[in-house]
Computed example of a mutant assay.
Amino acid sequence: MTRTGRVGVGLIGAGMISNQYLTNLSQYPDVEVVAVGDMNAERAAAQAAAFGVPRSGDAASILADDDVEIVVNLTIPAAHVEVSTAALEAGKHVWSEKPIGIDRAAAQRLVELAKERDLLLGVAPDTVLGPRWQTAKRAIQAGVIGTPLTATTAFQSQGPDWFHPDPEFLFAQGAGPLFDMGPYYLSALVHLLGPITQVVAVGTKAYETRTIRSGPRAGTTFPVEVPTHLTVVSRLANGEAASSLMSTDTALFRHGVFEVNGTEGTLVLGDPNYFGGGDLKLYRPITEFRDGRMAQEPEIIAEEGPLSGRGVGALTMARTIRRGGDLHIATGEVGYHVLDAMTSIEESVERQAFVDIRSTVAPIPALPADFDPFAATLTTSV
């Protein structure tokens, strides 16, 4: 039976990030959250009640729900592949929080399974679908900075243990600043400039244990399993080079350094953990001195399109399910390529050598300039 109207969504995972997804998905007219699932049934029921979702239960109940067409996988990274695989095998399309998984081979099998089942697989971050990044992509494609040459990115903090009540998983295998924050920066690089072909990296770890600083478990210590300060150099397919700092070992909080340099200018974009909400700055090469100083004022490029939020990736999938087209650009293939790059960065740290990236992705199109997540574009069910 061909379905029409809004696309039914079911969440698996009712932790902190589900608040943002539920808030945003409830504002997109083309989708409807019909169920929330979690291994903790009480937590799932509480989230469902808080956001007016009609049903709740465990993961199995979401997979068995005929009204669920897209499963939004918000489990911890170590469970991403297992839950996404179960959803695909149940005939559901899948939107997964980042990363796609923590094992390269398992994630590749997941991408292949989605193709075999003719189902859509999408992977966060969907911040790259926000107006800041789409405006930047169209500007770069239009040649505003000339030929792209390099990119510079940085994320610095003293770590999520200072605010998160259960931060252990963020310092375990498959997490750390590389797997937790890296997907935002690396995905933005891939969307804007193309696939990564080679990396070299140095990684260190300031502490062997950390202490939870907030919530009911404050004072509890836990082990740190992964590097918490990484310096990475990436080579991209079109010849560009990018330098990236990812750290949870610095007292200085500096989020969202993201700059793309070209032959005719530098585009300053801001934090890839956010969808937008501010203008882009374009710096042209210096052409004069004023009072003995370099005169350099940025040109302002206004963002195009309404500001969206987490869940917009599931929305682009929903519209693609109903209407076809190429709105679904935060794909499983892109998610796998980013995982491949992150795993290669880990290997580079261990081997102290350059590592070639095995995977690649085709050029990623920009969303239409008139893309509006808040528009009702799908017909009403009959």
Rank of each mutant, 00 (worst) to 15 (best):
A41N: 03
A139Y: 03
R138K: 14
Y207Q: 15
P54E: 15
V199Y: 02
R210Y: 07
D67Y: 01
V123P: 02
V199M: 05
D58A: 10
G13W: 04
I345P: 02
V111H: 01
G194E: 01
G265A: 13
I102P: 05
G10N: 03
L120D: 02
F169C: 05
P365F: 05
A330P: 01
A59C: 04
T231R: 11
N238P: 08
G324H: 09
G37W: 03
V31C: 12
S244Q: 14
T153Q: 02
A142N: 11
S247D: 01
M317L: 14
E303G: 01
I12N: 03
K205W: 01
L282Q: 10
Y274D: 06
G265F: 01
P363H: 06
L120Y: 13
S18F: 11
F354S: 15
G215H: 11
P183T: 09
G325K: 09
T228V: 11
F275K: 03
G278W: 09
A50H: 06
T263Q: 01
Y283A: 03
A302H: 15
E32K: 12
H80G: 02
A49I: 04
L25S: 05
P373I: 10
A35G: 09
A105S: 10
G176Q: 01
H328Q: 11
I100E: 01
S96K: 08
G309A: 13
V34T: 15
Q20E: 10
T204C: 10
A154V: 03
Y185E: 00
G8L: 07
A242I: 04
V312L: 04
A78R: 13
V338P: 05
G176A: 06
D370I: 15
P29E: 06
L25C: 04
F222C: 07
V71S: 02
A124T: 11
M16V: 15
A330T: 14
F275Q: 00
L22C: 14
G278S: 13
T127I: 11
T287W: 00
R254H: 06
A218I: 09
V34Q: 00
T220M: 10
D67R: 14
A44N: 08
T211P: 08
H229P: 09
A151W: 03
L339G: 04
T316Q: 03
G215E: 08
R310I: 13
R235T: 14
Y21R: 02
M39Y: 05
T135M: 13
T150L: 12
D126R: 07
L267M: 09
G325A: 06
V81T: 14
A242R: 00
V202I: 12
R322A: 06
Q198D: 05
D356M: 12
M342N: 10
M39W: 12
I300Y: 08
Y207H: 14
P131R: 12
I12W: 00
G292W: 06
P306Y: 00
V268G: 04
A87D: 07
T380R: 11
L378S: 07
P131E: 12
I321H: 08
H191C: 05
A241I: 10
G215N: 03
V7N: 07
I12R: 05
G176M: 05
V9T: 04
L236E: 02
M39C: 12
A154D: 00
M317C: 11
Q27W: 05
D370R: 13
T331F: 01
D291H: 13
A366L: 07
L252H: 08
L186I: 15
G5E: 08
F163T: 15
L170S: 04
E97N: 14
T147S: 13
T153R: 00
Y28G: 06
R284E: 08
K281A: 12
P195F: 10
